[in-house]
Amino acid sequence: MRNLIISCILLAFIVGFTAISSYNVCRICDEMISLVDAGEIGKAYEIWQGSADYISFFVRDAEIDVVTAEFEGAHKSFSLEDGEREAACIALRDAINEIRHFEQPSFRSVF
């Protein structure tokens, strides 16, 4: 009976922890995407710097590295022409979206 109680507590903890962490990661990603859409790459990068370590608990390092690289690319593109800047922002948005899709439970992410 003691093992059953421990298991039920563990299950409740896992479900709760997973739901909260997925919600947090999605919220951070949504915030960054809206800032990128508004052209405020600097603010989005600040958020990324503050939460990259937290997100790395749940997401593979490779995906973290991709977003960091895309941020650098988008930052450099501000000295470039409009078309290239837009392409860099789209790539950054896609990289952030990739993390969001991984964390948000959906038919696509599950299967």
Partner: peptide, 16 residues
């Protein structure tokens, strides 16, 4: 490259 939690959480969940 895989976060520790990716191993820990399913492990705890399946045994529970």
């Amino acid at each position: 490259d895989i976060p520790l939690l990716h191993g820990l959480m399913p492990l705890l969940m399946i045994s529970s």
